[in-house]
Amino acid sequence: MSYRIIVWVLALILLVPIAVFLIYAFAQGWFFPALWPERWDSGLFLRQLADPQLRRAFGQSLIIATGVSILALVLGYPAARVLELQTFRGRGLIYGLFFLPTVVPSVATGIGLNIVFLRLGLAGTLFGVMLVHLIPVLPYVVLTLGSSFARYDRNYEQQAAVLGASPWFVFWRVSVPMLLPSLVVAGVLAFLISWSQYVLSLLIGGGKIITLPMLLFAAASGGNQSLIASLSLIFIAPLLILLGLVARYLGSPATGATPRP
């Protein structure tokens, strides 16, 4: 019973902001002490949806976040595997280095990196922005995968190898299926973190790459609540869809939904 109440309270906490965005996006001229907005109008919201700049920014955000998720898994998988399954000197130090970006403000790294990226010709490119997103993304991917590797039984891999499976076959048919839930969670986390990056995208993108958060921050600086709410709705929609798609991997065994590959 009390468990249910907690679920409802959590659901409410998650849904109320979305409801507020919906109201602000469509209510026009709503000032205290009026109980009800002067009028409801979807014009501003629809205009944002049709705006070519917004569509381009949406597409670029999508490409960047997807690319970052893939890159982060490709880089994070071997890192987490070695860090958790092998013992070697300096392991703690390397773990520490991986987590450094979570405590160093991204403005500090961003400004320095912008100069390096400008010299390398990576600034203002999609690939450059993807690379710089890896800085805040990788710690979470390594942590998520690392916690799975900590409980990982390598005997299954050895078993398959003994039975004649090639390393590639072992990777695809044994390791990946066993780790699939945490690979999905790590990939989604990478997508979410990349999707909401502002400072690093702004610095490395240099205005050549415009992402959705940049439009959102620009709108927020103007204080027009209908505009901010409209963009916020467009910003969170793909995240909600993504979470819905992978929900079955996110459930913990306590809810009875044992993740199955």
Binding site: N114, I115, R119, A123, L202, G206, G207, I210, L215
Partner: peptide, 21 residues
């Protein structure tokens, strides 16, 4: 049209470009 939240971001961008030569 490149929308900025604050014009000072452009100033920083130009200073970085200068630093990068």
């Amino acid at each position: 049209r490149v929308p900025m939240a604050d014009t000072v971001d452009v100033v920083n961008q130009l200073l970085s470009e200068k630093a990068a030569g």
